[in-house]
Structure formats: structure tokens, C-alpha cells
């Protein structure tokens, strides 16, 4: 059985949803406190949502210096699957494990509502259970979810197929209005190797039949079926890379 570590920071509040989702998918999931330095032979690491360290300074800015993050960094760099959900995504960006940043929502409101996502990249350890183009419904709940990056980074993400999920209308069509002002309506991305994935929406809140929506469960089942091959080798056969000519 695959071992899945769920990291808890002071202020994490989706830790149980994330743990339960991983267990429902069939994982041997367990908590790791942020002061630990050992991931206990994890096969995958999940950073849950919440408001780590009260979002002081910037969302995720303090959490990235937690002792456990050095272990997460090493795990990620060795090709281990890491998923950041909401605040977890913010932490991964602050830690430099994912490019860009999550800024205050464009319309100033905390956005808590159901959204629809289109799956753009299935060759990651967390989306392999889906098919490209699948429409997933799950909630968002964030005040700072506006994905921002410089133009060169954005062009590279798009060209390399590193946009993992994108906001679309609830019917799967065009968005009637932006969710949070994210560039390209990007909801989630992955790193260059594909093994580190972050997204603002909450698959952990859409993974229980009791609440009538299991669209998010695939994020947790995918990683259990992931081959565990070095991400770089997988990528060379699965990612379509397009040369971007610097302008």
C-alpha cells in the first residue's frame, strides 16, 4: 500500500479532508507535523489547504521555512510526487518548487463557491486517472488565488503543457466571469518534471460520495497508480515540448 504523507502546519484546516480523501482512495495516509524533518518513507506528499501561520507576510511565505519543507524539497527534487492544494499551492510557489505566485483575487472578495475545471494535463502523478478535457466540479475557497507570473514563465508553462487544470464555466463552456483574475484562468500547474502539482480548487472537498461529488477523488487515486518512475524519464516520453523562441 502506498504511503501518503499529509503535512500539517499551524493554521492548516483542510488536513483531515485531505487525509480522508487519500484514505478513501486506498492510501496508507498519515499526518506529518511541520516541525518534523522526516517524511517517514512517503511515496507521495500532500500539502493541504488552510491559512498556515495566519497567512502572515504573504500566504505560504512563513510555512516554506518550516523544518519539514527541507525534506519536501529533497523529496520533490528526487522526483517524488508532491501535491499542494490551495494554501499548499501557495507554499509550493513561495518555496520555488512551482513558478509564479498567488496574489489577492482581482475583485477583492474571498471566493468560496463551486467551480468547474478542465483537465489540461493528465501526465502527472495526480491527474493520470482523468482524461484530457474532462470537466471536474469542485469548490474553491480563497482570498489570494490569482495566479501571476511574468510573460516568459507563462509562455513556457503553456507551451510545455504545464497548465494542469484551468477554470471553465460550470457547463464546461466559456467562463461567464473570471474566478479570481488568474492569468489564462489557470487553476493549477506542475513543475518542469511534472511531479510537483499545485492547484487552488479543493479536490479534497469533492472526494466523498456522502456529499454527492467525487470529481476530485482522481487526484488521490492517480498517485496510487503512479509508476514511481523518475519523473524526468516519464516526461521525455509523455510531454510534448514546443520550442519557445525568445522574443
Amino acid at each position: 500500500m502506498k504511503r501518503v504523507a499529509v503535512v500539517r502546519f499551524p493554521g492548516s484546516n483542510c488536513d483531515f479532508d485531505t487525509l480522508n480523501s487519500a484514505r478513501r482512495a486506498g492510501a496508507d495516509a498519515y499526518f506529518v507535523w511541520h516541525r518534523e524533518t522526516d517524511l517517514e518513507q512517503a511515496d507521495a506528499v500532500l500539502l493541504p489547504g488552510g491559512f498556515s501561520y495566519g497567512d502572515y507576510l504573504r500566504s505560504g511565505a512563513i510555512a516554506r521555512f518550516s523544518p519539514v519543507m527541507a525534506a519536501v524539497q529533497r523529496f520533490a527534487e528526487s522526483g517524488g510526487p508532491v501535491l499542494g492544494i490551495c494554501n499548499g499551492f501557495q507554499i509550493l510557489c513561495e518555496a520555488g518548487l512551482l513558478p509564479g505566485a498567488l496574489m489577492r483575487n482581482s475583485r477583492l472578495t474571498f471566493v468560496a463557491r463551486p467551480v468547474a475545471l478542465r483537465v489540461e494535463q493528465t501526465e502527472t502523478p495526480f491527474t493520470s486517472a482523468y482524461r484530457k478535457g474532462d470537466i471536474l466540479r469542485m469548490p474553491v475557497a480563497h482570498g489570494e488565488g490569482r495566479f501571476a507570473a511574468d510573460q516568459a514563465t507563462l509562455a513556457r508553462l503553456e507551451a510545455d503543457g504545464r497548465v494542469v487544470v484551468r477554470y471553465v464555466g460550470l457547463d464546461g463552456g466559456a467562463l461567464p466571469e473570471t474566478i479570481n483574475g488568474s492569468l489564462g484562468e489557470i487553476a493549477g500547474i506542475c513543475n518542469d518534471l511534472g511531479n510537483v502539482v499545485g492547484l487552488m480548487p479543493h479536490p479534497d472537498r469533492a472526494a466523498d460520495p456522502a456529499i454527492g461529488n467525487t470529481d476530485g477523488l482522481g487526484f488521490f487515486t492517480s498517485v496510487l497508480q503512479w509508476g514511481g518512475a523518475p519523473a524526468q524519464l516519464r516526461r521525455s516520453t509523455t510531454f510534448t515540448r514546443i520550442q519557445v523562441t525568445p522574443s
Binding site: L57, R58, A61, P99, A101, M103, A148, A149
Partner: peptide, 8 residues
């Protein structure tokens, strides 16, 4: 390293 985000 910490006080400002180099991206934004």
C-alpha cells in the same frame, strides 16, 4: 529571501 516576493 523572505520579506518580498521576487515574482510580484
Amino acid at each position: 529571501k523572505l520579506l518580498a516576493n521576487p515574482v510580484t
